[in-house]
Amino acid sequence: MNGIHDMGGMHGMGPVVAEKNEPVFHAIWESRLFAMRRGAGAWGKWNIDASRYAVERVPPTEHLQASYYARQYIAFAKLMVERGLVAADEMATGHPALGQPKLTPPLTVDKVAAMVSKGSPTNREFKIAPRHREGQAVRTREIHPATHTRLPRYARGRTGTIIRDHGVFVFPDTNCQFLGEKPQHLYSVRFAARELWGEQAEPRDSVYLDLWDDYLDPV
């Protein structure tokens, strides 16, 4: 979606301000939210793309006003209800609905270390022929899906070169909507900075993006 989250190349956001000796979390609620999202995620009711799509659907004014974790909270609460882990009434009252048996959480303390060290790989072992190859010139498609995509606006309709085939990966544009993983080749694609930004960019500089076959056409 052409949302506020797609920030590459925007102006007016101000200088980058780095905090000295920054803590991992700035408040306890941030750490609890961080952990809850993983704990609830272990139910397998959504995937990382659906989770990102939920953040992208936070309305733009809220998206910019909220801190990172406040934004995550809005998206997480919405996702929990949408995917049926929490009923809207329960979210509103803060109490479990009457007569519901208590569930058994899938992520228990003994499973945390394995979850952290294993993660959730998104490569797939399917033998799928790549549509493009290393060294080839490609043009990104001029697409504007209203749903989640990982092809940023600043890189649409631009010509680049494939520098590396990462292998077969889950395709976010379908996975985010639970329409299937549609596994396909993912590539590292190099774009000259001037191809993206014109003459104002330094002639030697470049930007690399990881892009799927469905975003690319041969030149």
Binding site: M36, G39, A40, Q100, P105, L107
Partner: peptide, 16 residues
């Protein structure tokens, strides 16, 4: 709410 419903385990969150 999530702990009461049994959706998450508090000590697992602490460990994370």
């Amino acid at each position: 709410l999530l702990v009461e419903k049994g959706l998450v385990d508090k000590s697992a969150l602490d460990a994370l």
